[in-house]
């Protein structure tokens, strides 16, 4: 079981490394969107500190959305998805591997660069640590939920817009608890509660979403 997941992760990571422009462009999108806010708002530290968690999280959601349409589309176009669906093990395991690989190339880089961007908003060290932790904990949920949307819109013309409409509303809980964790830390309440809920969301979506996506993929392959 673990073999399959590892095989898919290795393959997808190798493909991503051969096509680094995808990773880099999503990351640059994140950096630029986040950096535009301090420039637009001006040097008011109090206001920036208040805006930071929301801005960073919204930018992270949008950056994740950028790479979602290709999650299954490439495999679908060249026939690999058919072969994956015909492999002896359940398709849900394959999708779990793809979700993990997607997180490693989209969510993880965002979390690593987030503290640097947080400095532009004059966030304290504590807040930066919680921000990084929250993005690390929350982005797997974004990949998992996104996989359902990507599978449902597979092969649909104009699927990209439809995908955003389907998936962004489902990202709201992650956004609320993710930004809430940093807010709570800044205001001195402590972000542990928010982080626990974020972890719960991640476990639930990484555990269940691949099976829902697999069901949607089977319909797309008919």
């Amino acid at each position: 079981m673990l073999n399959v997941i590892v095989a898919v992760v290795v393959r997808d990571l190798r493909l991503a490394m051969r096509r680094q422009s995808d990773i880099v462009s999503a990351l640059f999108f994140f950096v630029i969107v986040v950096s535009l806010f301090p420039l637009g708002i001006g040097p008011e530290p109090d206001l920036l500190r208040k805006l930071a968690p929301g801005v960073l999280w919204v930018a992270a959601l949008l950056a994740t959305m950028l790479s979602l349409p290709r999650l299954f589309a490439d495999d679908h176009r060249d026939g690999t998805l058919e072969q994956l669906a015909l492999a002896p093990h359940p398709l849900g395991l394959v999708v779990t591997g793809k979700v993990i690989a997607h997180w490693l190339v989209s969510g993880l880089p965002l979390a690593l660069i987030a503290p640097v961007l947080g400095l532009q908003f004059d966030l304290s060290a504590d807040a930066l640590i919680v921000l990084t932790g929250a993005i690390l904990l929350g982005t797997p949920a974004l990949s998992g939920i996104g996989a359902i949307g990507a599978a449902l819109t597979l092969g649909v013309r104009g699927g990209g817009v439809l995908l955003s409409l389907l998936v962004l509303p489902l990202y709201i809980p992650v956004l609320i608890f993710g930004a809430g964790a940093v807010d709570a830390t800044v205001s001195g309440l402590g972000g542990e509660g928010h982080l626990s809920l974020l972890a719960a969301l991640t476990f639930a979506s990484v555990g269940f979403a691949p099976w829902a996506s697999a069901a949607a993929l089977k319909i797309a392959l008919e």
Binding site: R11, R14, L15, R18, R19, G79, T80, Q83, L84, P88
Partner: peptide
């Protein structure tokens, strides 16, 4: 027990032929 070859080749353009074969075999167990 099934080996299916569709009219799509199911190979990845970015990978080499060797990597394609090995990856396909691993994924098919």
């Amino acid at each position: 027990d099934l080996c299916y070859l569709g009219h799509l080749n199911a190979i990845k353009e970015e990978l080499t032929p060797l990597e394609n074969l090995l990856a396909a075999a691993r994924l098919a167990d």
